[in-house]
Write a protein that binds this DNA or RNA. Structure first.
Length: 568
RNA sequence: CGGGGUGUAGCGCAGCCUGGUAGCGCACCGCAAUGGGGUUGCGGGGGUCGGAGGUUCAAAUCCUCUCACCCCGACCA
């Protein structure tokens, strides 16, 4: 490709509404352009990378035995009513009408449609297992689209759905998809981890998310430092551990703390650490009531864990100051776990604390050296979020926390959809049997953004080789003036193309500095610079841009150049 | 949805408080010089100032309504 005819359109300045690095770089390189909130056009440069991601995913899916098909993006409401999701899905589902006022939605996912296909197509257990997939545009009307392509409303997804006679068969395919996803992200050149994920209300035995590791990731992942345990912090459990300090219990004191309301203020005033304090959070109960949650001062409540506990309103809602006053007759800031006039749930770690500091349930006072009256009768649960340094839930090693971008999610669905839509086959005995399903998604457009989040420097993108829009930049110095440079470049350009190398030839009449800056910004992994100076010596210049360390410029002979290009 | 913010040329912004008929940088077009890290000089083109209504002799600027976009949203006990 010649730059003169490629519409290379780079920006020197960062568009003001781009917060994250991938969004900034995708706009500055001209990979994408925004149409409206959460919706982007893929420009020719960006589309090249997007297609590369798609093709690798497609190849690996095909290798796994999955079959590609393509379903409509617009779906009739009837199917969604049948599965019950027309009511459940909420405003994230974009609903539309046709000219006859018939209801439709723009597909955010395709369980209903694929299950409808399968219930018509698949009649016998002999046709199972089968795994269908597609690569297609989805629309989810996110409350707050942000971060450009990372959390867009319209995006490209690879979604696969497998069908099985039984759970055992599902588990086999699930493992195949787990392996396939690992191959895909490895081939894409991304640093990733498969982590245990919330299997949620849908049920099923297992669910894994695939995360690309990047500091800007929206999810936090807990890793063990000495086993392969990895889980989203949202669900990493903490087990009860009765490791009391066995210190002698001290005499409880009531201390005046007229202005100290926060843990930080109380700690400063009483000269204690947050880990010696207990804080009490008041949340709404399912009934018209409140529930108190007690945690150590240095621990954070995990809302997902709390929501799952019986009696607590879902979604988790904190009581307002007024509600706390009216139901408990206590001023927020001085709440403690002792003698509370409501149900109390204590986190495991708080339940084993001794001689702790907490609110006195009396305005202006805290207790020091407080102790549970009878710790064995406490209702203690796993309430808190796992932290760096905590013991790993699998019992091996300690937890480290890294940030990740969720690019894939695999799921054992069970029979939720096949049951609702009555997708059944005849088994060996001629008996009708509801099929069991798995589903497997990859955010294709998000993969491209995540690759940038993981691979960039101050000059721009550093593409993994397999995602780069072009492999080689061919940059002539002063080609307008030098017939020799021009002739050489034109020939080299043709030769590289003949070798099957994707080369972008900067034939614009611009100064070298601008060429270097542009090609670094768009992240081309190999750069060849051709000048009179070098040609005189029979050499050209080569520089790679394949990792974050700055690479030395090499002077290489023209023969070696072609070899070098071919090797990559 | 609640809170905050911003809409002025393709992009980044100034002008608004104190009304007087729109400006800067990048990008774009032309000419020239330059020719190994977004070079320089000269000359250009492009904006009904998000929209509607109002106040006024006069509105980007003041008032009302509206639309769009962006940011934040238990972390306190």
């Amino acid at each position: 490709m010649r730059v003169s005819s490629f519409h290379l359109s780079t920006l020197k300045e960062i568009p003001s509404d781009a917060e994250v690095i991938s969004h900034q770089l995708m706009l500055r390189t001209g990979m994408i352009r925004k149409l409206t909130s959460g919706m982007y056009s893929w420009m020719p440069l960006g589309l090249r990378s997007l297609r590369k991601a798609e093709n690798i995913i497609r190849e690996e899916m095909n290798k796994s035995g999955a079959l590609e098909l393509l379903m409509p993006s617009v779906q009739p409401a009837e199917l969604w009513q049948e599965s019950g999701r027309w009511e459940q899905y909420g405003p994230e589902l974009l609903r539309l009408h046709d000219r006859h006022q018939r209801e439709f939605c723009y597909g955010p996912t395709h369980e209903e449609v694929i299950t409808d296909i399968v219930r018509h197509e698949i009649r016998s257990y002999k046709q199972l297992p089968i795994n269908f997939y597609q690569i297609q545009t989805k629309f989810r009307d996110e409350i707050r689209p942000r971060f450009g392509i990372m959390r867009a409303r319209e995006f490209i997804m690879k979604d696969a759905y497998s069908f099985h006679e039984n759970q055992e068969c599902l588990e086999k395919t699930y493992q195949v998809m787990h392996d396939t996803y690992s191959s895909i992200f490895t081939r894409l050149g991304l640093e990733f981890r498969a982590v245990q994920a919330d299997s949620g209300a849908i049920g099923g035995n297992s669910s894994h998310e695939f995360h690309v590791l990047a500091d800007s990731g929206e999810d936090a992942i807990a890793f063990s430092d000495s086993s392969d345990y990895a889980a989203n912090v949202e669900l990493a459990p903490l087990h009860f551990n009765d490791n009391k300090t066995k210190q002698p219990l001290s005499e409880q004191e009531k201390i005046s703390t007229p202005t100290q309301k926060t843990i930080e203020e109380v700690c400063t005033a009483l000269k204690v650490t947050p880990s010696m304090c207990i804080k009490v959070l008041i949340v709404k109960a399912e009934e018209d009531d409140v529930i108190a949650l007690a945690l150590r001062g240095d621990h954070e409540l995990n809302t997902i864990k709390a929501e799952k506990l019986e009696g607590i309103a879902s979604p988790l809602t904190f009581a307002s100051d007024e509600e706390i006053r009216s139901s408990l007759d206590i001023t927020p800031g001085f709440i403690g776990p002792m003698n509370l006039n409501c149900r109390l749930i204590v986190d495991h770690a708080a339940a084993v604390l001794e001689n702790f500091v907490c609110g006195a349930n009396e305005t202006g006072f805290h207790l020091k050296n407080a102790n549970w009256d009878n710790s064995s009768t406490l209702d203690h649960q796993d309430l808190r979020e796992i932290q760096e340094g905590d013991p790993s839930p699998d019992g091996q090693g300690h937890i480290q926390i890294k940030r990740g971008i969720e690019v894939g999610h695999i799921f054992q669905l069970g029979d939720k959809y096949s049951h609702a839509l009555n997708a059944a086959v005849l088994d060996k005995n001629g008996k009708e049997k509801i099929v069991t399903m798995g589903c497997y998604g990859i955010g294709v457009s998000r993969v491209v953004a995540a690759a940038i989040e993981q691979n960039y420097d101050e000059h721009g993108i550093i593409w993994p080789l397999k995602l780069a829009p072009f492999q080689v930049s061919l940059l002539p110095i002063n080609m307008e003036k030098s017939e020799q440079v021009k002739t050489f470049c034109e020939k080299l350009y043709k030769d590289l193309i003949e070798c099957g190398i994707e080369v972008i030839f900067d034939d614009r009449n611009v100064r070298p500095g601008q060429m270097f800056a542009d090609h670094e910004l768009i992240g081309i992994p190999h750069r060849i610079v051709v000048s009179d100076r070098g040609l005189k010596a029979g050499t050209v210049e080569y520089k790679s841009r394949t990792d974050k360390q700055s690479q030395d410029i090499e002077t290489i002979s023209i023969k070696d150049l072609i070899l070098k290009a071919l090797l990559n």
